[in-house]
Structures are given as structure tokens and as C-alpha cells.
């Protein structure tokens, strides 16, 4: 009896291992077939949440540009999600040739994981920020709760929707913009500022992991009175539902600079440095800058920015430098046990 069982076990294990081997073989042959077909380059762009539409359009324009420039076809694979989460996935092994994230710190997290070389910020013009944005309020049509500025949305009974600053880039810009307002209001009295931010987060109804989740909660599921949103995300919602929403520009906001970078370790391994570099460089071209503006991002090219009247250029925009740069802002506010944790825990 025992011997028979061993025979069965042997048969079973052989079957199992053969299945596993064919699995590996299949993957390999798939790869080979992909390489042999045409000279087609593929790059992976790991980006944050609201850029879905921008890069869907840009990738088409770039593929055409690259074909003209190099004669080669390029296929760009997109991945989107909360900026911090995306950075973490790249650090954990998601093979991205380029990262186009919501803020400098998240790209820096990929650098800290040893994948991007030091000094990436200066690799592309304007601190590697080809387009910018800011934080605005999206409210329901007619602004029924009369929300005009940050001071209005911390009042009791107002439902606020924002993503989680721990995982979302946009949410960190939201938080810093609110902080900048409170700092001005209270002349830098830290206790009062913290109290203000605490009130703000007590009003938060939905804390999603990325900006897009927050938008769907507000726009599609009808949650809350105000969505703290990327300007581009707010414009997009307004375009889709012109009769349902209004944009309110607060008196103080922040200049949000999404950062782009080449993931050096990956492009060197995959031999895609040339196409990846051009992919990011071309973001600064007039064509791409117009495309960014059409997708409601503020072009970094001032002449092109001026052509688009929808961008309110009179807002008082602070920058992250007012917080001592991203490393400091992240450490003080968003690290574990930082100010955000202290505020959010003490409910």
C-alpha cells in the first residue's frame, strides 16, 4: 500500500513540476515572440491618478513623434494610482522606465530605493516639472453651502472629500495649501494652525487612496459638499457635468509641481534610455504643452499658459519651498508619527 502511495505522489509531483515548467516556458516564448516581431520598443510610464487622460493623449502624440525622429515604433504602457503607492510599487520592483508622479518627494522615494541616480531634479528643465497645477475646491452647482475659502470648509457640518495624504500626492498638496492659508490667518501660530487642520480633517467624509477615488466619491456617488481637488481634476469633472458643479478658487493655494524622472536602473537594464529621455523631453515641446493645457494642466511655458484663460493666474500661490522643500515637509507632516498622524489620531 505504502509503495503505491509513493508512486502516486511521484506521479503527482512530476505532473506538478511539468505544469510549472511549461508555465515558465510559455512566458519565455511569449517574450521572444514579442521581441522578434518588429523593432518595437516598449516603455512603461508609472504615473499618478489624474493623469490618465493626459497621458492617454500624450502617448499617441509621442508615438508619432518618435516614429518620425527615430523610425521606430514605441508602445507605452500606463499604470495609474495614488502617487505614493505608485512610488512604493516601483521601489518594490514594478519595472517603470519613467515615473511621472504627483510630487518631488515620491520620485525621491524611488531614488532612495536605489533606482534613480542622485540629482535627477535637474535632469530636465524647471526642476523636472513640465506642467504644474494647483489645488481648488469643487462644489455643487450654485454653491449651496456658500463655500468661498478654506475658512468656510472647516465649519461644523461641512462634508469634505480629499484623498489620504499618506498615499496620495494631491492630498499632500491639499493639506499644505490648507496649512498655508491657516499660517497666514493665524500669523504662524502653530497650535492654532494645527487646530485648523484638525477641524478640516474632522469634516472629511471619504479618505480614498488616490485623487481619482475621491473624485468618483464626490461626483458619481454624491458624497460631501466640497472636493479638494487638483485644478485639472476639477476642470475635468466640470467639463463632464457642466450643470452640476462649480469651481471655487480659494484665496491661498499652492503651486503643485508634479515631477518626472527616468528610472536609471531600469532603462539601463532594458536599453530604453534614449526613448525614455525623449519621452520626458518632449513633454516640454510646444505641442505637448498645448496638450497639457487642453487637459487642464498649467503649461510650464509661460507664453502658452497665457493663451488659456481658464487658469486663474491671480491666486496667491505658495510653493513647497515655503515649507522648506519636500524632504522637510514630508518629514514634518506626513511621516509616521508626523503632524498629520497626530492630528488625525486625536479625533
Amino acid at each position: 500500500m505504502n509503495q503505491n502511495i509513493f508512486k502516486f505522489a511521484a506521479v503527482a509531483s512530476i505532473a506538478l513540476s511539468s505544469v510549472l515548467f511549461t508555465a515558465c516556458d510559455e512566458n519565455k516564448s511569449e517574450n521572444k515572440a514579442g521581441e522578434a516581431k518588429v523593432e518595437k520598443q516598449t516603455i512603461v510610464n508609472v504615473s499618478y491618478d489624474p493623469t490618465r487622460e493626459l497621458y492617454a493623449n500624450y502617448n499617441k502624440v509621442f508615438a508619432k513623434h518618435w516614429k518620425e525622429k527615430s523610425g521606430k515604433d514605441v508602445e507605452i504602457t500606463q499604470s495609474h494610482g495614488g502617487s505614493g503607492k505608485q512610488a512604493l510599487e516601483v521601489a518594490n520592483g514594478l519595472e517603470a522606465d519613467v515615473v511621472t508622479l504627483a510630487l518631488e518627494f515620491d520620485v525621491d522615494a524611488v531614488r532612495a530605493a536605489g533606482l534613480i541616480e542622485d540629482g535627477w531634479v535637474n535632469e530636465f528643465p524647471l526642476s523636472s516639472a513640465p506642467y504644474t497645477s494647483t489645488i481648488v475646491f469643487l462644489v455643487r452647482k450654485g454653491n449651496p453651502k456658500n463655500l468661498k475659502d478654506w475658512g468656510d470648509i472647516v465649519k461644523p457640518g461641512i462634508g469634505v472629500i480629499t484623498p489620504n495624504p499618506k498615499t496620495s500626492g494631491g492630498a499632500r498638496w491639499n493639506y499644505l495649501a490648507a496649512w498655508a492659508y491657516a499660517k497666514k490667518l493665524y500669523n504662524g501660530d502653530e497650535a492654532k494652525i494645527k487646530d485648523f487642520i484638525k477641524k478640516l480633517f474632522q469634516n472629511v467624509l471619504v479618505l480614498s487612496s488616490g485623487a481619482r477615488g475621491a473624485t468618483t466619491a464626490f461626483v458619481e456617488n454624491g458624497q460631501g459638499d466640497v472636493l479638494l481637488a487638483w485644478e485639472n481634476e476639477a476642470f475635468l469633472s466640470k467639463k463632464d457635468h457642466p450643470d452640476d458643479y462649480e469651481i471655487v478658487v480659494p484665496s491661498v493655494s499652492i503651486l503643485a509641481q508634479p515631477s518626472v524622472a527616468i528610472v536609471d536602473k531600469i532603462v539601463d537594464k532594458r536599453g530604453t534610455r534614449d526613448v525614455a529621455t525623449e519621452y520626458l523631453n518632449f513633454l516640454y515641446s510646444d505641442e505637448a504643452q498645448h496638450l497639457a493645457a487642453q487637459n487642464h494642466y498649467r503649461p510650464s511655458n509661460k507664453a502658452i499658459l497665457d493663451q488659456y484663460k481658464e487658469f486663474d493666474q491671480n491666486v496667491n500661490l505658495v510653493t513647497v519651498e515655503d515649507f522648506g522643500g519636500w524632504a522637510k515637509a514630508q518629514g514634518t507632516h506626513f511621516s509616521n508619527g508626523g503632524v498629520f498622524d497626530q492630528i488625525y489620531e486625536k479625533k
Binding site: 500500500m1 509503495q3 503505491n4 502511495i5 509513493f6 508512486k7 502516486f8 506521479v11
Partner: peptide, 15 residues
Amino acid sequence: EEAAALMGAGGFTIF
């Protein structure tokens, strides 16, 4: 199974 084994069936046949 034991009966089958006594009658001389192999493991796989029994199964």
C-alpha cells in the same frame, strides 16, 4: 482500497 490492494491492484489503478 485495501480490498483492491489485496487483489493486487497498483496504486494508480486503485485511484
